[in-house]
Computed example of a mutant assay.
Amino acid sequence: MTRVVSYNILAGGYSFRERGAKRTEQLLKIIRSAQPDIVGLPEGINPQVPGPMVAAELAEALGMQLVPGGLPTSRQDYQTAFMTRLPIVSVKHYDRPGILARPLLEVCVEEENGQHLTIFVIHLSASFNRGRAGGHIRMREMQEILKIMEPLRLAGKPHLLMGDFNTLSPKDAFTASALLKYVVGLDVKRKDKTLNDGHPYLDSVVPPKLRIFNPLLHIVARTPFLLALFDLAASIYAPRGCIRLLTREYQDCFRRLHPSEQGFTCPAAAPAGRIDYIFANSVLAERLEMCRVLETGEDDLPGEQASDHLAITAEFGAGVIADQPVTSSSDMSMHS
């Protein structure tokens, strides 16, 4: 049995609205509640903050190895990261300047029964303030990621893709009114307009040419009838293309086991949609035994006290052991 967790810990685990306070203990309570073997962190490391890193503290407390992802194209962005208690067989970073905003992180581990399992950790571009162009950016990223994973797919080797996709799945519900009220609330409380703390604000989701209507959005957020219209429009126009493309080749672990549940993951304080996923190839999906969203952690800690995303976890049974080449756990390869 192998249990994995995908968790966007927000800005590398720091709260910049609270003078850079760490959320290590809160995050540990969420992660430990799942008792994982593997943890993928889409916003695992904040390069702007000097060490010791929250991710390193998490790994040490959990008795896991930490693997940092490659540097993103923007110095203001966050690195992906990976933690595991299982032996690491290999690590690869895929840099695709002009295509991937953040390098794709690939880690192959050896499961307890000796099988090799390959995990890809991603954080797709948000670019919500670019309108439909943002959806095209994520589609381009997904097409490239599918190309990278193709050799494993053709070989039928177990692997999964997890992280923050910043995209809704086809047919999934979307309570845009909850998101709007959440974002407007953050905007009202925001004192430092230059603060980049990982939270969404109106300017980060509204295209520049439409920001003159920001005051109108404040009115919409307070008007039930307008909120209902906002939900209808957002549900129709919300981008879903890259998940539709991905599901042609991979199984959505949560939806496979929960066909009708919402499974909202973001924002944690006002869940409006599902944008955090664990996808498995067909071989691995046959081993899927559990997948759920972690709404609370140890001591019943609410997820919103740890991050702006809720974590998602999945468990895979042992399955049939296939013949595999013997590879030392110290064989670490880095590719661009």
Rank of each mutant, 00 (worst) to 15 (best):
residue 39 V to T: 13
residue 19 R to A: 14
residue 62 L to C: 05
residue 47 P to F: 10
residue 87 P to L: 00
residue 80 T to C: 13
residue 20 G to D: 10
residue 70 G to E: 02
residue 65 Q to N: 09
residue 13 G to D: 07
residue 48 Q to Y: 05
residue 78 Y to N: 07
residue 55 A to L: 09
residue 66 L to I: 05
residue 31 I to L: 15
residue 38 I to K: 04
residue 42 P to W: 02
residue 48 Q to C: 11
residue 78 Y to K: 01
residue 47 P to K: 11
residue 59 A to C: 01
residue 71 L to G: 00
residue 87 P to D: 03
residue 78 Y to G: 00
residue 82 F to E: 02
residue 59 A to M: 02
residue 49 V to G: 02
residue 72 P to I: 05
residue 3 R to I: 04
residue 33 S to G: 14
residue 77 D to L: 02
residue 54 V to F: 08
residue 59 A to W: 03
residue 26 Q to F: 11
residue 7 Y to N: 10
residue 24 T to L: 06
residue 27 L to M: 15
residue 72 P to W: 03
residue 59 A to V: 03
residue 52 P to I: 02
residue 7 Y to S: 03
residue 16 F to A: 00
residue 40 G to H: 07
residue 1 M to I: 05
residue 51 G to C: 07
residue 78 Y to W: 06
residue 25 E to H: 14
residue 4 V to A: 13
residue 10 L to N: 15
residue 66 L to D: 03
residue 20 G to T: 10
residue 59 A to I: 01
residue 42 P to N: 08
residue 9 I to S: 10
residue 50 P to C: 00
residue 6 S to Q: 02
residue 49 V to H: 09
residue 69 G to M: 04
residue 40 G to Q: 06
residue 32 R to N: 07
residue 68 P to V: 01
residue 78 Y to M: 07
residue 81 A to K: 00
residue 69 G to E: 00
residue 63 G to I: 05
residue 62 L to E: 08
residue 83 M to K: 01
residue 44 G to K: 03
residue 84 T to Q: 02
residue 7 Y to E: 10
residue 66 L to R: 06
residue 55 A to F: 14
residue 62 L to T: 06
residue 79 Q to R: 15
residue 16 F to H: 10
residue 62 L to G: 01
residue 64 M to R: 06
residue 72 P to Q: 07
residue 66 L to N: 06
residue 37 D to Y: 04
residue 75 R to Q: 04
residue 68 P to G: 00
residue 14 Y to A: 05
residue 22 K to S: 14
residue 20 G to S: 11
residue 86 L to I: 12
residue 8 N to F: 12
residue 73 T to R: 13
residue 18 E to R: 15
residue 77 D to P: 02
residue 81 A to S: 04
residue 43 E to F: 11
residue 52 P to D: 05
residue 15 S to W: 12
residue 74 S to A: 12
residue 16 F to Q: 00
residue 14 Y to N: 04
residue 49 V to K: 13
residue 10 L to D: 07
residue 31 I to D: 14
residue 56 A to W: 03
residue 41 L to N: 09
residue 83 M to H: 12
residue 47 P to L: 10
residue 43 E to P: 12
residue 78 Y to R: 02
residue 19 R to F: 11
